[in-house]
């Protein structure tokens, strides 16, 4: 019997500062390790525990994969102490990610708030790798301030690949020489300033409060619920739909999610707010 809790070992090839309090880890891709856009792994650091982390790299890259980790808890803080050449345990990839295949031949809107850009970056990189498969692509990305920005050295490349990248900063410091133009305010501001491509499919990732307001905007803009996909965060222990920590209604964030169609989530008539 395969033991679902066993991990495979992955070597850290590179570590780089990315955003504030956050690092980008490039790991050797173990043999047979295939992942889809928006899936996650459970990183095991014996002595400290395990934590679910989104894969943020190009699924087409067969040699390595990347994890962006912000210092937030016990495990993620310890991950920050790791050095190039160290090994970590990995299990997964888990869950259902963004249905990128549904975005083919369509206009695409990606909305990211803060760290929410991490699981959406694989979608951006896949779109660039197969640019002709997709129609007009727009990114709405909101961060607190310049120092929080993730992957800021890549925006040029995104723009070059005919991606309409739009940035807003909630609290710009003006201290950084940011090449990319931005609008001041929360991510919802972008909906007021930037015209949307007609009838797009939308992939969202950000904090719960962002969903509340962005979903209102999408609803107003006439998006169909089944064209909206959101990635959710929950506490997780097993990663395989048993331990119950990540349950939402009758579903598990680890197994049926972390990406859910808004049409499915909205159907839930239970006793608490999902987002």
């Amino acid at each position: 019997m395969k033991n679902s809790y066993e991990t495979i070992s992955a070597k850290i090839k590179n570590i780089k500062e990315e955003g504030s309090n956050s690092k980008l880890f490039t790991l050797e891709r173990p043999r047979g390790f295939e992942f889809g856009v928006g899936q996650f792994v459970i990183v095991s650091l014996p002595g400290f525990g395990e934590a679910p982390i989104s894969i943020c790299s190009d699924p087409n890259d067969k040699k390595s994969f990347q994890l962006g980790v912000r210092k937030a808890g016990k495990v993620s803080s310890e991950i920050h102490n790791l050095k190039k050449g160290d090994r970590v345990g990995i299990r997964g990839p888990y869950g259902h990610g963004f249905p990128i295949e549904l975005a083919e031949k369509r206009n695409v809107l990606l909305v990211a708030g803060g760290l929410g850009l991490e699981p959406l970056r694989p979608a951006i990189l896949e779109i660039i790798a197969n640019r002709k498969k997709y129609q007009k692509v727009q990114i709405f990305y909101g961060a607190k301030t310049e120092s929080d920005l993730l992957f800021s050295n890549e925006y040029d490349n995104w723009l070059k690949n005919d991606i309409n990248f739009n940035l807003c900063l909630d609290n710009p410091s003006g201290k950084f020489n940011l090449k990319c133009p931005f609008i001041e305010g929360l991510v919802t501001v972008l909906f007021e300033k930037i015209p949307l491509a007609p009838d797009p499919i939308a992939f969202l990732c950000g904090p719960p409060v962002m969903y509340k307001f962005v979903l209102e905007k999408l609803n107003k803009a006439g998006f169909k619920d089944e064209d909206i996909f959101v990635s959710l965060e929950r506490r997780m222990n097993c990663g395989i739909g048993v331990c119950q920590h990540c349950a939402i209604g009758g579903k598990y964030t680890c197994k049926h999610g972390p990406v859910f169609s808004w049409a499915d989530l909205k159907e839930y008539k239970g006793g608490y707010n999902i987002i």
């Binding site: 808890g73 016990k74 719960p208 929950r234 506490r235 920590h245 239970g270």
Partner: peptide, 28 residues
Amino acid sequence: SEVAGANPQASKNKFLKTTAERIFFWYE
């Protein structure tokens, strides 16, 4: 239902926020 964050006890880092939500979760 707490997730990592500067303050895990903060309501925004806890997904079952009230007793009613927790007992509903149990029945569910």
